[in-house]
């Protein structure tokens, strides 16, 4: 691939007690690409993501041979309700972010923010009658967070299990939304999840993590159809299938 947007080489993370949390992780992603990092709890997938954006918890020691990030990153998190300031109406949060990050005037920011409401199928009366995060549903809050992240015009969107806390029907809407937005805006995406099915719907490439290591990485079709590692096979087999409906 041509120019990589983001390159991480030999990332290692250690806890304060010295345990090796993330081992020799190398990643790269180009413009408009999507990479899914799949793993179970304690695999180090979320820590890897936090290391990329520089949000590591205190006490974690980091060594990295090369960390090249060209362009802007934005991140969305697992729990939509705790990621929004509860004392701050959502539309105002959105307008503030647009105004600050895009350096436009207040009325202009207002207009851009209204555009985002529409794009994310959020209730458009939020612009007139703003509401607090607690007054919105989980799915709506997650959309607001996606809008906040995308309003910074990122080149790479980092997603940490953004659909895990949502109901399946809402999860489907958010997945479809992310797909559409990515097609339209062309950002690259790193999507961390424990759910192989969700990752397979969103990503072209998959990396499987276990105990802090990437044990397998490749094109989605290769990883899923011909898993090289026994653990990947176990993960694929663990997905409980349901039949298609017309």
């Amino acid at each position: 691939m041509g120019s990589d947007l983001l390159t991480i080489k030999h990332l290692n993370l250690y806890s304060r007690e010295g345990s090796h949390l993330v081992k020799d992780v190398s990643l790269s992603i180009g413009h408009g690409e999507t990479l899914g990092i799949v793993g179970e709890s304690g695999s180090g997938k979320t820590l890897t993501l936090k290391a990329i954006i520089g949000l590591l918890p205190t006490g974690i020691r980091e060594t990295c041979e090369e960390k090249k990030i060209e362009g802007k990153c934005a991140m969305i998190f697992q729990s939509p309700l705790t990621s929004l300031d509860p004392l701050y109406p959502v539309f105002r949060q959105l307008v503030d972010v647009v105004e600050y990050r895009q350096g436009v005037s207040r009325p202009e920011a207002q207009k851009i923010a209204e555009g985002w409401l529409q794009k994310l199928s959020l209730p458009e009366d939020l612009a007139e009658e703003d509401r607090y995060p607690g007054e919105l549903s989980g799915g709506q809050c997650q959309r607001v967070l996606i809008a906040l992240a995308l309003a910074t015009k990122p080149d790479v969107l980092l997603c940490d299990e953004p659909t895990t806390a949502l109901d399946v029907t809402v999860q489907k809407q958010v997945i479809d939304l992310l797909k559409d937005l990515q097609k339209e805006l062309g950002f690259a995406m790193i999507f961390v999840t424990h759910n192989l099915a969700v990752a397979s719907q969103l990503c072209e490439r998959l990396a499987v993590m276990r105990h802090g290591e990437i044990i397998e990485e490749g094109r989605k079709a290769d990883v899923l159809k011909h898993p090289a590692h026994a653990y990947t096979k176990e993960l694929v087999d663990s997905v409980l299938s349901v039949p298609e409906v017309d």
Binding site: V168, T169, Q171, K172, I175, N195, L196, A197, V198, S200, Q201, K220, A221, L224, K225, V236, V239, S241, V242, E244, V245
Partner: peptide, 20 residues
């Protein structure tokens, strides 16, 4: 075949592995 629209919607929403 779910009997209700909601049942159908639920079933449709379940994420399935997409191999391609």
């Amino acid at each position: 075949s779910p009997k209700t629209d909601y049942g159908r919607e639920l079933l449709k929403a379940v994420p399935r592995i997409e191999y391609e």
